[in-house]
């Protein structure tokens, strides 16, 4: 089994979920409460990675992060390194690729929070930001958790984007799905089978854990989900 690739994938997925939590929560909250009439355009952009072939997404990311592009040049100036075929470049690609998997459950959870609870909090003299942290976020917790788990699992299995942006550098960008592909290409079915089985088991455990957690919270929190 390719433990280096497995650990790299887990590390990538964990970082992706963390970044998506920090970036996705404000975006999702804005999507849930904004009355802006052109909001649907933003929603369409957020959902784009769901329908776009990973290779297409990867191709554009590759263009965007190359040292010739403004973004890539900025990163080169700031760190002295380039993004393509690096872990950081891969992380950026993963965040974009899994964006809807985090933001959509987040937004749905925020929308499901009873508006009157928020207004009750305001009437009790609690500011908007504090209301968000004391009422909205705790009540949206099952959905936030679902988004984190989904983006984690989605990142573990990504393949096309990784090949386009990260390439196949062992320990740097060679993730578990690329590793399995390589083993199959080398007709090393036993190794591919072992790694695949591990990934299957891991995914199942993570999902079962999430759904189990939601079932429990749902019964005692009748107003959420």
């Amino acid at each position: 089994m390719d433990w280096v690739a497995i650990m790299l994938s887990v590390r990538l997925a964990a970082w992706t979920s963390l970044v998506l939590f920090l970036v996705g929560v404000p975006v999702a909250y804005w999507l849930a409460v904004s009355p802006w009439r052109f909001k649907f355009l933003v929603e369409a952009v957020v959902a784009l990675p769901l329908v776009l072939p990973p290779t297409v997404l990867g191709f554009y990311i590759l263009l965007a992060v190359s040292p010739q592009s403004p973004l890539g040049a900025l990163y080169l100036d700031a760190t002295g390194r380039t993004l393509p075929f690096s872990f950081q470049g891969l992380l950026l690609a993963s965040v974009l690729y899994s964006f809807p998997f985090a933001v959509q459950p987040f937004a749905a959870a925020f929308q499901a929070v009873d508006r009157r609870l928020v207004e009750a909090s305001w009437s009790l003299g609690v500011s908007r930001p504090r209301t968000f942290f004391r009422v909205t976020l705790p009540l949206a917790r099952p959905g936030i958790l679902a988004g984190i788990v989904l983006s984690f699992a989605h990142t573990l299995g990504e393949f096309g984007v990784v090949l386009m942006v990260g390439g196949n550098l062992p320990g740097v960008t060679r993730t578990v799905s690329v590793s399995i592909y390589d083993e199959v290409q080398a007709l090393n079915y036993a190794a591919a089978g072992q790694t695949s089985l591990l990934l299957l088991g891991l995914s199942l455990v993570v999902l079962a854990f999430t759904y189990g957690l939601q079932r429990r919270t749902r019964s005692s929190w009748p107003l959420s989900w």
Binding site: R116, E119, S123, G125, V135
Partner: peptide, 20 residues
């Protein structure tokens, strides 16, 4: 003036207690 600054108590129809 926002609701926070009015010091008015509002009792909602279904009470809107915080379930958590």
């Amino acid at each position: 003036i926002p609701p926070q600054a009015r010091r008015v108590a509002y009792l909602f129809q279904e009470y809107a207690l915080f379930p958590h």
